[in-house]
Write a protein that binds this DNA or RNA. Structure first.
Lengths: 343, 343
DNA sequence: ACCCAGTTTGTGAACGCTAACAATGCTCCT
DNA sequence: AGGAGCATTGTTAGCGTTCACAAACTGGGT
């Protein structure tokens, strides 16, 4: 008979308490908890009953200490306020949960390499088992390449200049599809409203657009550049509205397309009557712009999910089916696009 | 002298390694790390040098085990894809970081009480020191009230029927301001496109709208209801467009307002010529709708920040300045609103 | 020279869990 | 009856920190 434990129990029950109540050793409790084989059914029952009665919960710090695994994954993202990153985070979290991991997030202050380094270090200090980096700027990617040795790491974004495992959407192919679609409708050429120059997505989309134009022998107009925001799309739109020869614009994302639509509207240029507009992303609102926006859908949630899968495979020692996953985007046709009008 | 440690060091250095290299005891290393007083300056220097040389990083699991604190906070959110929750999460994360905490997120599958319970338990099992719940549905809030004893917890959302510490925006006052603004412009009454009935935000905004109408002796039209999405706003808009007597609509959020604008546009009813529209949230795109949307701005980032502050105060034993924080929203006037036209 | 108070350092013992191994019990052969 | 071989359980030793306390060292007063 124990000599301890009278009075108002305050402290959380530990494994030993469960063991005592169930009349077994703490190790047996551990076995039950971890689904080890060779535990007799009635013993298991007794242990489970004790666990329930005490409302016992294993101490994760103690477990992490001895197993050297925290069952926690880190995510570093740049601006989780944007629709894309937010959706990826969501996808990552859901996938992580079903794989039995927790998710710890941290966002970047700035997008230089040191900031990425810092974020990953922070996560590592916390003891995460692996890291997903959502940071599609060139500077971030190169930083990632440099530190990938210190902890299992997967990047989500685009570009393939590094050997870091990576999942991305087919930015180039999406841009190509969008541009070709416009050319096929008879537009002589397609203008482009690009994203920030240091984002890989921008670069790839721009390249897809340019290559398609070149392949078709169409003239390549100079690029307008925004910062993904509707505001910047509006400003670029004011400039584009003045190009009387422009009949088609491919925007690097839907938000900028929204701003562009308003600028064109204010300038009295009808869409798609005078100008056709295509976006990229297919945010949930894109179908409710005026007019509804034809765009290139990317499945951010899936992106996050796949990134996490890749990471978990790496962690659990599965041989990578492939260290490079590309998800095909898909064109969504709506009313912001029409045949080239007469000029 | 030591007999161990030759050959290719593989394993992470631990405190004892640092101690040996610096020629002190592990406890002294610990003191340096934790900024304890009574460590001679040159000793401290030697220890720090050893830490740098070995690139030693403290093991957070071991520390958590003995201190019983993980320096990790949990966040449960419902749909972190939406602009609001995503921004709050962002605010929370930034605030947490500067307070020296990590942030672990988990999202709800469904919005019933059990799901909230589960999420919080999950976080607790992981050993978080406290939890922020972003879950503004009535069912979630009541669940939160039930389990608040098990772990320090702060809710962000609205409604005040529980004793859980909470930070929210002034939904009611925002709705009142919007409605009054329309009334003041001469509109006989204001229609309302509400959010889901089980969200506290919906309820508060609807109540603010209704009370203002009643106080002004204006008729109270029946409420249209959406689900926050542009799609639902569009559908409601089709119905509203048929109400020939409607001259003003207050939408419970900007996304629905976007859908509404398109429906009105398609129905040939001009905004603000025939109908004035006001939204809620002031998402970054609101200024680029056609026409630019007058709306009620709420600062989600600030909301998250304040929630985290409250939680940290609770954790660190500071007496709450107040257990209930309300952030005042602010009207943003744009072109979607005009004086009542003649009927 | 000696003692006191304070500063600076070291020594063990937790924290709550899993890993490794040892010990017991049982079943089925021969 | 006497093991061999497996299923089942228990015992002991860490994992890498911090905490509580003890030891050693300082300097200033007598």
């Amino acid at each position: 008979m124990g000599t301890d434990s009278v009075g108002s129990e305050q402290r959380q029950p530990v494994m030993a308490d469960v063991a005592k109540l169930a009349g077994v050793s703490h190790q047996t409790v551990s076995r039950v908890l971890n689904g080890a084989p060779h535990v007799r059914a009635d013993t298991r029952e007794r242990v489970l009953a004790a666990i329930r009665e005490l409302d016992y919960r294993p101490n994760s710090a103690a477990r992490a200490l001895v197993t050297r695994r925290s069952q926690t994954l880190g995510v570093v993202s740049f601006d989780s306020t944007l629709y894309g990153p937010a959706s990826m985070l969501d996808g990552i979290e859901r996938a992580a949960r079903s794989a039995g991991y927790f998710v710890s997030v941290t966002s970047l202050r700035s997008l230089d390499g040191r900031s990425v380094q810092e974020a990953v270090d922070r996560l590592r200090d916390q003891g995460v088992d692996g890291v997903v980096v959502i940071a599609p700027q060139t500077s971030a990617v190169s930083a990632v390449a440099r530190l990938s040795s210190s902890v299992p790491l997967v990047a989500v974004g685009s570009g393939d200049q590094t050997r870091v495992p990576m999942v991305s959407v087919g930015n180039r192919s999406g841009a190509e599809a969008a541009t070709r679609h416009l050319l096929d409708l008879g537009h002589r050429t397609v203008h482009h409203l690009a994203g920030p120059a240091n984002w890989l997505e921008s670069q790839d989309r721009e390249e897809g657009w340019r290559r398609t134009l070149e392949a078709a022998g169409a003239p390549v107009p100079s690029v307008e550049r925004g910062d993904w925001s509707a505001r910047s799309g509006y400003q670029a739109g004011l400039r584009i509205a003045e190009l009387t020869e422009a009949t088609a614009v491919f925007c690097a994302n839907d938000h900028m397309a929204l701003g562009l639509l308003r600028a064109l509207h204010e300038a009295g240029r009808s869409v798609p009557g005078d100008i056709s507009v295509v976006g990229f992303d297919d945010i949930p609102e894109a179908g409710y712009f005026i007019p509804p926006l034809t765009t290139v859908r990317q499945d951010f949630g899936e992106l996050g999910r796949r990134a996490l899968e890749l990471l978990v495979e790496e962690l659990e020692g599965v041989q990578h089916s492939s260290t490079r996953v590309e998800i095909a985007p898909e064109m969504v046709l709506r009313r912001s696009v029409g045949p080239a009008g007469r000029r």
